[in-house]
Design a protein around this nucleic acid. Structure first.
Length: 476
RNA sequence: UCUUCCUUAGCUCAGUUGGUUAGAGCAUCUGACUGUUAAUCAGAGGGUCCCCCGUUCAAGUCGGGGAGGGAGAGCCA
């Protein structure tokens, strides 16, 4: 018989038909009641076996074992579920030795412990929900851009471009690490390396995406990026996924509109299609926050927070206004900021958090940053001091999006590159876009895992990517 | 990389002023159980108290060093 997904049985609530179900045992009670989960949804189906079932089989129905069950869907005789399966025949597909199985669901294992058994943690309610939501968000991202006529562009993972200077990079080489070939001056001779030059894992697909935008008008990338920074925080990974749309003919305001529409679209899509998972994560969050003192708990539940974001427009302020808000804040006057506030600073997390969590209490888009704290490719404003950059700051996460209108004027761009000591000769291919039919254009980058954090209410980024890569950790 | 907290049974945690044989709940094992919902009931087994060095008659407990983890910070997405 063809397998039926548990999600479909639970959803249509009908009874009186034969099914085959396959999945893993979540619990087995009273020698009769098997709670089976196949990952298709949060819920388990209850399969009821007869007390005359072969004791050899009953013995092997243990938490974690995999089963195939044939039976009839009937209205449940007990409370707690509408339908259940009356089992006709049962096959153990894979045994699970309970003495060795490290996942004891009844103990509510900590997230930290589950991280150590990341290969098994998908079998918990929490991680099941997180990774179903992650999938839905990824799908919604492609759907959003596809529906708007964007071309999904695959930018390279291995790159020779180190121009952006967006942090430390991982070197990609096939040279022997102990004894690499060297030039006369003692430097490693990359001419003998696989690509004939020094190559790295990409830190961003933006520059390549700009090349695509100069032909397709609107493109986006969605792929892995790598940073070899020694950052040990709940918001950083060495390997993470980033979405980077790039749109020709867009200015900074179009860019903000796109980013806001995009974020709202994917949140709405997840709320619609993974309501049950998000509601479970919401109760999980409430439980977790019970450990915290009152003043550190969230004011809104997870679902309310997401709906609030959907139903309110993001506040849009300039960097200059943001600094004024900070300078006029009671927090500043009581000298509660650790870092000084004045025009020209690169705002610290404490400043961003104050703006977004205490002052505006919703997502905020900050534009017009000082040019000296931003990248070379951002378009210079007429004031000569600021650039058309935009960051979207979100409660609990900080910077979710960073983007800008790009500098499309060749002379201004090369001048800025020279000032910042970026080699224009190596970047000829990038500058060619400005030489041959340049147009105003804009784009942004959104860290996928930070989006997943926001939507799931999880607080550590290692818990929203299946196999996190962080300093000193690449197991599994 | 910095600050700070933590590390005791498979998991989550108690452990008093340094003092006999280190405890609990859950999990596991054995048995019971014809409607359970984190099933329940009875019994049993289970410890390199993170590692090293030191103080002491005596260290899970005190001191120093190291490792691992959490939270915050820097950098950023």
């Amino acid at each position: 018989m063809k397998r039926t997904k548990i999600k479909d049985i639970l959803k249509n609530e009908e009874s009186g038909y034969q099914v085959n179900v396959k999945g893993w045992v979540r619990s087995f009670r009273n020698n009769q009641f098997i709670a089976i989960n196949d990952g298709s949804c949060m819920g388990n189906i209850q399969a009821v076996i007869s007390l005359e079932t072969d004791p050899e089989i009953v013995k092997n129905i243990t938490t974690g074992a995999s089963l195939s069950i044939d039976g009839t869907v009937i209205p449940s005789l007990g409370k707690g579920q509408k339908v259940e399966i009356k089992v006709d025949s049962i096959t153990i597909l894979g045994l699970c030795n309970t003495e060795e199985f490290p996942l004891q669901l009844k103990n509510k294992p900590s997230l930290e412990y589950l991280r150590e058994i990341a290969h098994l943690r998908f079998r918990t309610n929490t991680f099941g929900a997180v990774f179903r939501v992650r999938h839905t968000l990824a799908y919604a991202i492609h759907k959003f851009y596809n529906d708007r006529g964007f071309v999904y562009m695959h930018t390279p993972i291995v790159t020779a471009s180190d121009a952006e200077g967006a942090g430390e990079m991982f070197c990609v080489t096939t040279l022997p690490i102990n004894n690499p070939p060297r030039n006369e001056d003692g430097e490693v001779n990359y001419k003998e390396d696989f690509f004939g030059r020094c190559t790295n894992l990409t830190v961003s697909g933006q520059l390549e995406a700009e090349l695509g935008a100069m032909a397709f008008s609107e493109v986006y990338t969605f792929g892995p990026t790598f940073r070899a920074e020694n950052s040990n925080t709940a918001r950083h990974l060495a390997e993470f996924w980033m979405i980077e749309p790039e749109v020709a003919f867009n200015d900074i305001v179009d860019n903000m509109d796109l980013a806001e529409d995009f974020i709202k679209y994917v949140i709405a899509y997840a709320l619609e299609h993974n309501r049950e998972d998000i509601e479970f994560l919401a109760t999980r969050l409430v439980d977790e926050e019970k450990q915290k003192p009152m003043n550190e708990r969230s004011e809104m539940g997870l679902v309310e927070k997401l709906e609030f974001v959907l139903n309110n427009s993001f506040d849009r302020i300039t960097y200059t206004e943001a600094i004024e808000v900070l300078l006029n804040s009671p927090h500043y006057k009581k000298k509660k900021f650790q870092y000084d506030v004045k025009w020209g600073i690169d705002m610290q997390s404490e400043h961003e958090r104050y703006l977004v969590e205490k002052h505006y209490k919703k997502p905020v888009i900050v534009t017009g940053y000082p040019k000296d704290i931003k990248a070379f490719y951002m378009r210079q404003n007429d004031d000569g001091k600021t650039v058309a950059a935009m960051d979207i700051l979100v409660p609990g996460i900080g910077e979710l999006v960073g983007g800008s209108q790009r500098e499309e004027r060749l002379d201004k761009l090369t001048q800025r590159m020279n000032e910042m000591h970026i080699p224009t000769d190596e970047m000829y291919w990038y500058l060619d876009t400005r030489k041959f039919g340049t147009v105003p254009h804009a784009g942004f980058g959104l860290g996928f895992e930070r989006l997943v954090l926001f939507v799931t209410g999880m607080t550590n980024i290692r818990d929203v990517i299946p196999f996190p890569r962080t300093p000193k950790n690449a197991e599994f």
